[in-house]
Design a protein around this nucleic acid. Structure first.
Lengths: 340, 340
DNA sequence: TTGAAAGCGCTACCAA
DNA sequence: TTGGTAGCGCTTTCAA
């Protein structure tokens, strides 16, 4: 049905090989022949069958990306930017949203491996290394982004989560907060890093670290965090001494916390200052505009894409590489207690 | 490098054909042989080379989806849900975010056609029919969603945009608004339909339609609409008589409008009531929680996926089919002037 | 500069 | 029930 190399070859009285060479810009082809072939290709709107090509070359010019939740603006933006970057180089992008389910994620990765993607990009919900060992067996290069696994020495691109925690917490200290709580995320690297940064900033600010001031918002996905933040804040407010600042794992959690605080008749930031993370698109328009640490989705995406293209073209064993990007604090009303 | 059918066949002293038949659950295979083969496949973790299979069968088990902006929550959700639906049936999803650029979109569609996707799903930014004629030439089934083109008789799934306009406008009338403005979107079917619904609701409510009350927010992408809404509202407010209700093409536009209105010292909804469309995730947490028409992204996604699976499996010429889903109004403070 | 032959990994068809 | 043969559309190698 579709036009094949052979059809063009027959039309022009040439061999398939010659036409194939023109297609791939092979140098030893006469100028006249090349022009004739290209002209004919245009005329019949020839599209090479990429499956046939892949079968021989072993390259598919496809990349697979797995994110825990495409609805999360951070991941949506990363995927969008990556799609632009790799398209320019002729790659197509397979997408999968794993819904934070390790089993589903594993299944999708297996699917992508079966499709012989040239590179895999994964913001993983895995707890074990099994899946990655499998990928390594297949010798398909892969890049983790946003989240990494302890004990797994793999390519990685993500924000410096410890710096996120420091930035947010130090800012709250600068704003005069003296009892800062932290609503931490689940047991993944991002939450662990941000907690680490929180502790470090407290230490630098000579404030005591109290284990009770760290409250967990459960194990469900990121953007499901609003109810989690609400519950956590209610618990904090029920205590004898309440915090005067809260660093929230992410923005949805911060929204939930804000809701509970406002409901309790307290003021933000005067009674409790809030900083989130993620810099949600519409943070400016909230009841109290939300201060937030921006992870720089665009620069992460660019770094992932660049690394992927490097990996796709390099042959043989590759050295593992990790890239940390710098977060940026966006100060809004929810944490601004002092005019400068 | 990777395990092939042939390797398994040799290991077990069988022919490639027999192993291939086991792989595909072909009936005429002895139970004993089948078990041996399956066992070995597990052992060596066999993954069939899908490119080789596609080359013969002509099916790739891939679907291509093109959206104008993946960062837009509506499209992110649609893609996410579709990815879940089609994955269950063994399909993988190619994604592309066209950035509302018809040329880029066309290029990506061409890429997907070259990859011989089994179905295409497009929320299109095209103005002309050329691209679609090309797709039809290739006989690849395609589905438009969210937006459709006049004069193009194609498969379509989307919300009933006229109903969106009616729902929003009628609600404003019910809330006592008597001079309702409409901030309309660019020249695409969604904006045209919503405007149509606006007019219809006015007529039903026996309110006059005034051309001047329809104000355009420019041609840039959906989510870029906040500045557009702000500008449009400023213009409306500068007039001698201002509206007491505004139906906005989408939520970002509504946010912009709200900003301008609050800045001008007016109250929402007492002075001006607002209804948007899209039901942004965090509408509840806005300065004034925003009433909005929900397009039902999930049900649109399911309908698109179901239609795609039908098309992928049906042979020969297919009848074109259009499916309209019903919008739902989510009432929040921005339009609630009367308690019931 | 051009092309014949071989083959990528798999499936379709038909014979044993 | 099993398997030989042919071939999907293309690239690779090497000879002309």
């Amino acid at each position: 049905m579709a036009v094949r190399l052979k059809d063009i070859a027959v039309d022009l009285g040439l061999s398939v090989v010659t036409v194939s060479k023109v297609l791939r810009n092979h140098p030893d082809i006469g100028e006249a022949t090349r022009k004739r072939v290209l002209k004919r290709m245009k005329e019949v709107n020839y599209q090479p069958n990429l499956a046939a090509r892949s079968l021989i070359t072993g390259q598919t010019w496809t990349i697979g990306i797995v994110v825990p939740d495409l609805l999360h603006p951070f991941f949506a933006q990363v995927v969008k930017e990556i799609s632009v970057e790799v398209r320019e180089k002729g790659y197509s992008l397979f997408i999968s949203s794993s819904d934070e389910d390790p089993a589903l994620e594993q299944q999708e990765i297996a699917q992508f491996l079966a499709r012989r993607v040239d590179v895999l990009m994964i913001a993983s919900a895995q707890k074990s290394l099994e899946t990655f060992r499998r990928i390594e067996e297949e010798k398909v290069p892969y890049i983790l982004f946003d989240r990494r696994l302890q004990k797994l020495d793999a390519n990685f691109v993500g924000v410096d989560d410890c710096a996120v925690g420091v930035l947010a917490t130090k800012h709250l200290i600068d704003q005069g907060c003296r009892r800062i709580a932290h609503m931490r995320g689940p047991e993944i690297s991002t939450a662990i890093g941000r907690l680490e940064g929180y502790k470090r900033a407290l230490a630098e600010g000579e404030l005591p670290f109290r284990g009770a001031d760290v409250i967990s918002i459960g194990t469900s996905g990121d953007h499901r965090g609003e109810p989690g933040g609400y519950e956590a804040a209610r618990k904090l407010l029920a205590r004898k001494t309440r915090p005067d600042g809260i660093f929230c794992f992410n923005d949805p959690v911060a929204l939930g916390a804000m809701r509970a605080i406002l409901e309790a008749g307290l003021r933000i930031p005067q009674d409790i200052a809030i900083v989130g993370c993620g810099n949600l698109s519409y943070s400016d328009f909230l009841r109290v505009p939300l201060s937030s640490v921006d992870q720089g989705a665009a620069s992460i995406a660019r770094a992932v894409a660049a690394m992927a293209l490097r990996l796709a073209h390099s042959k043989g064993p590759r050295r593992v590489h990790a890239e940390l990007t710098s977060p940026r604090l966006i100060i809004r009303a929810s944490s601004l207690r002092r005019s400068k």
